[in-house]
Design a protein around this nucleic acid. Structure first.
Lengths: 219, 219, 219, 219
DNA sequence: TATGAATGAGATTTCATTCAT
DNA sequence: TATGAATGAAATCTCATTCAT
């Protein structure tokens, strides 16, 4: 009862850490069980704090879900920003972007899964989030630059559209995570192992590179 | 109690019709709200019968969900079977298959959405369904035939793999429905309108055709 | 396990009885503790059914509260309807109405108290209830008839207004219940005992009769 | 720590002002939502200080509520004391008192509403407050004096009782505020507007004056 | 085969109050 | 005297499922 050191470090007030802790656990929980399937009790139990704190910081289950969504988008865009594609030749830059996307999404399956969840909810929560829309529109800028340089250099077809291209890249990368279970089960194919990923990554990259190639010629 | 004719007296006791009614409503409900989000009460209210019947026919919410999943897969494969691709030149057949897939998925968004739901549940229910696995493995046969003919004819690269190809086709078509809300919101792009669909359909088709083209040459 | 009588009568499905039971207990509970002070758990415990049934029938605490309010108003108006004041001379009829009001309100203190509660809520729930407004507007008809007859007969002042009069009657009767605790405590006066009620009842009646008397003359 | 002047440095540490601020906000809050309906968080947010201070000064929600009640009663009696009715003829004094009561209550609706709240709680808090009982018993003295003078002068009936009379005055004035919402909604009558108040004030005054008039004669 | 009432277990959310600084 | 973070207990409400007829 006497002579104890100050106080247990773990119980110290550290709001930022508390928020972060909740967000991390919640991403996992929502990615695993969806919005309605996630249980606040479960979530709180995995946290260093209590159920009560979730409401203190995020107001409601839906508020927490939106915060998770915003945080997840913010993180992928932050990572993307480190790529520095502007100094590479356009086709190399494009290939690098595709590979980054494929790797990031396969390494961050929880992110992919909450995006799936949000689509099940018809984008209802994202629609109300100014920050997500802002972040992502910016994301297209890098790809637009690559396309412009590629067209000028004559290594890309003139009619390529950055948003269409982004859609194709996303589709091919996303599917490997999103439909892993149904597709894998039906066709008895591993979609998560190291080798399978490496192989698929190159097919996806090649698919994109061939698509942007100028008429009549393929890499 | 005796001597009643077989034919259903308009609104009375037609078990098959009742089952069908419940399945249709349930597909919509699960596609809209997911497995945990769907409400048996809501679902029953939209039905011509009562909540009790759902349990009578399907045993539980999960039983109903699995039945919906099986029914949805059965229907797409049945439709696919009417395509008769064997008599067309391989590239024409491939293009036809891609377009069919794109159109079918965009016309049957509830099907796509329950597949998303099933993936959120990590394929837990599909894994226990012999019938779904059987149905779908057969689906690859047509594509395998196309690839074999294409390679022999020299119009497709020799290393093309039917399952990889199916994965790419699925990915590109699926995304247009599955990620419609987040992608559409973020990039302010319509992904469901008639024109947008027509345009995207051709990009997807071209992407696939270019991918299978023999080295050095593109359609 | 065998030879037992049918089933305990008390558990038989009787929705109307269940509703009634809940309403009766809820009136007491809301009258005692107000809307926010009332506890669904407490309330359910005093009921023959369960907490779950309250939500089954009334949807929410607020839904139940409104139902209680409507039921309470319906009952006083139904009782009032049995008075048959039309066949009495106007001043006798008025005196009878005042005495009835005083007695009814002092016998149904829970009714008075939920009206107080509703006023604390600024009439928010009553405002949305068509049925309450309808019921009560009708209540003024009897008083209007009395006034008309009284004026014609020359036993009431010509400028008496039925709604003003109703307000005065209500005010004098209501207060004896509504402010019983503060007034009684402060002035050390019993306001609920048999004698106190009888005495106050006559003061209230006389106050009203004197108010309606023609100029210059009092009963 | 030393040599600081007494005067509060504009925005710093002024206990009396802090108390006053909390009491004012709390009166409004309790009047609006009742005791159980009031939220300490809400209340604190409207205050210039923090939630902690509420507990520091008043100990608990109930302690604050009682303080509010005492403060409100203290204020009305203080105002009443300024009337100086002893020098007017008894009927004039009575009319002045009625009009003052009517005006004060209609101008201080929050006071009326906490009295309603206290009655919902069956006078539990007032019963424990010596100060409120003391204050109010004094209030009857003025009215008693008026009655005595009126009887002696022959302008009031001999059997008039000051407490009964106070009850009637209170009832008629109180109702206009307390039942404003239900009565107003049901009979579609404004009870808060300038004209409505002026009209009602005279009806109430006349009602009281007629009641005290000697047998057989009315003002 | 069919129905509407009923239910237990557990979900989300709220709130007065206290702690650490 | 002051603050913002934290909390346990309890409140309201939900939901898949079953019962009585």
């Amino acid at each position: 009862m006497t002579g104890r050191a100050k106080a247990p470090r773990s119980r110290k007030n550290d709001p930022e850490r508390t928020r972060r802790d909740i967000l991390d656990v919640a991403l996992r929980e929502f990615a695993t069980n969806g919005l309605s399937g996630a249980r606040i009790d479960e979530l709180a139990a995995r946290t260093r704090t209590s159920k009560r704190m979730i409401y203190y910081y995020f107001g409601s289950k839906e508020g927490l879900y939106l915060a998770v969504l915003e945080d997840a988008y913010r993180r992928i865009r932050a990572d993307e920003g480190t790529l520095d594609l502007g100094h590479q030749p356009p086709l190399d830059a494009l290939a690098a972007l595709v590979r980054f996307t494929f790797d990031y999404e396969n390494a961050n399956t929880d992110f992919i899964r909450v995006v799936m969840v949000e689509n099940i909810h018809r984008g209802k929560y994202i629609a109300g989030s100014e920050s997500i829309r802002r972040l992502n529109s910016a994301a297209i800028a890098a790809l637009r630059d690559i396309c412009e340089r590629g067209i000028v250099a004559g290594v890309m077809r003139a009619d390529v559209d950055p948003i269409d291209l982004h859609m194709s890249i996303s589709a091919l990368c996303f599917f490997n995570v999103s439909n892993r279970y149904t597709f894998g089960t039906i066709f008895g194919r591993d979609m998560a192992g190291r080798e399978a990923l490496a192989r698929r990554r190159e097919i996806v990259t090649e698919t994109i590179l061939r698509y942007v190639a100028p008429e009549g010629w393929c890499a």
